[in-house]
Design a protein around this nucleic acid. Structure first.
Lengths: 264, 264
DNA sequence: TAGTGGTCTAGACCACATA
DNA sequence: ATGTGGTCTAGACCACTAC
């Protein structure tokens, strides 16, 4: 093969930089960690071809079976994609994490399940140290939060007002990026790309409350001015909250997919 | 060991009943399927000890490594629990699944998270072959379904109208039990106890629609008579639906915990 | 045709739980 | 002391992909 030397060199560099020296982890866990870290660092970029099982079995202290076990786990976790005959590549999360993650209105016309298209428009962005319901999950502790207000339009028919909160020190890009560039952007995808962290768990709650004045003009009011508000907290693997988001749901006919629920 | 013969006999019966004859699945997938099916059937009940790796390697056409791979996957999926030195047991979901499963309104007074108490009252029960939105998830195919209408009262303040659907042939006890005995009963727990059925996943959806006439008088109307309806489909480990349930949520101040969301 | 991942095996050694 | 699951290995065969 032509690129054999270069590939082997990259594989060696990978092992030198990321293989955990003396750890309490087992070998297949260490290899998983090495790939998770290196992908998060950008050493392996989306779509890039990884070393083959054989190369890894030679350049690491793992046997073929152990390498296979680690790669299988990484594949199941969605970090890489493996194809028999052609190799393993870093999963391209940009393609996978399709835009409407939280706002998935079921389109009954589509056989086998499908969703209406969603458009977003940014209304406002603020940097504030104010406390609120988002403070506790985000562990704000007086720090600055970026708040971004958007309108989601589903099927060119249903308007949803959304308030997004994230710690400024943790995700400075939300405070820095030009406002116009935020339009149509998928925040979840952006966070995944910049930080390489897949968001595994979402805490979902459904709140019933009278919306604040700046929201009222966008949403249909229920009895007594109370509307349903879907609240989502995106959690990192260590349990820390990455962002906090409210969706003021209008009382218009439709069916919103909330995914599969687990407890704990 | 004392129970060796009995255990081996159970292991043999398991393989005879659940091992897929000629399938396109690989061996470790077939073994996983056999366990998922048998656990869903109640052949293995919650907390019951499973055959050891060695027993399975002998009673199935799988080698030890293949058995281990299948059991590892089942453990990761939360279906079984494995402890080195003591064996593998069916995960006891009854302990994890506390009483008010779907209707958990957050009580802000309780530190660290707590929920308002819930009371239930049965209004009506019907046995019908009618089709509806529940038919497809339940795979009704013209069979009889038991429909039970209830009122959930949260914190002696919020009334929620609920419609519960289950296949009669699958859960005849819901059609047989006296109506009065259904009051205050937790259906989910009842199913777990009677059948030893673990409820693996809950598909949650939030629908917005005008409720049927018999519901209208119980719920607060929103604009245009549209109210939010929480729909829950309880899925067994093998992917079959155990029941289908709608909750007509009133527009009264409150916060409903929907648990943690996953996709796929 | 050569290389890749997918599956499966037989066997080894170890850490842990139970009696 | 025995049995359990957890890890790891070396090697085999196969299905698929790309060249």
């Amino acid at each position: 093969m032509a690129g054999g030397d270069a590939a082997r060199e990259l594989s060696g560099e990978f092992v030198r930089r990321y293989w955990p020296e003396s750890d309490e982890l087992s070998k297949h866990e260490r290899l998983q960690k090495a790939f998770a870290d290196s992908i998060a660092d950008g050493f392996w970029k989306a779509g890039m071809r990884l070393p083959t099982e054989m190369e890894l079995a030679q350049s690491t202290p793992c046997s073929l079976g152990t390498v296979q076990r680690a790669l299988r786990a990484l594949s199941q976790a969605g970090l890489i994609e493996r194809r028999r005959g052609s190799g393993s590549v870093v999963a391209d999360m940009r393609a996978k994490i399709d835009d409407p993650w939280h706002i998935r209105y079921v389109d009954p016309e589509i056989e086998g399940g499908g969703y209406y298209p969603v458009e977003t428009r940014v209304l406002d962005r603020q940097l504030t140290g104010r406390a609120g319901t988002w403070s506790e999950p985000l562990r704000q502790r007086g720090a600055q939060v970026v708040k971004i207000d958007r309108i989601f339009t589903v099927d060119q028919r249903i308007d949803i007002y959304s308030e997004f909160y994230a710690l400024e020190e943790r995700f400075p890009e939300f405070a820095e990026i030009e406002l116009a560039q935020l339009n149509g952007l998928n925040f979840k995808r952006m966070l995944s790309m910049e930080h390489g962290i897949p968001f595994h768990r979402m805490r979902q709650r459904l709140r019933f409350e009278a919306p604040p004045p700046h929201v009222t003009k966008y949403v249909e009011n229920g009895t007594g001015g109370i509307v349903p508000v879907l609240n989502v907290v995106a959690l990192a693997p260590n349990g820390e909250a990455n962002y906090y988001q409210d969706f003021y749901l209008p009382l218009k006919a439709g069916e919103l997919d909330l995914g599969f629920a687990t407890r704990n």
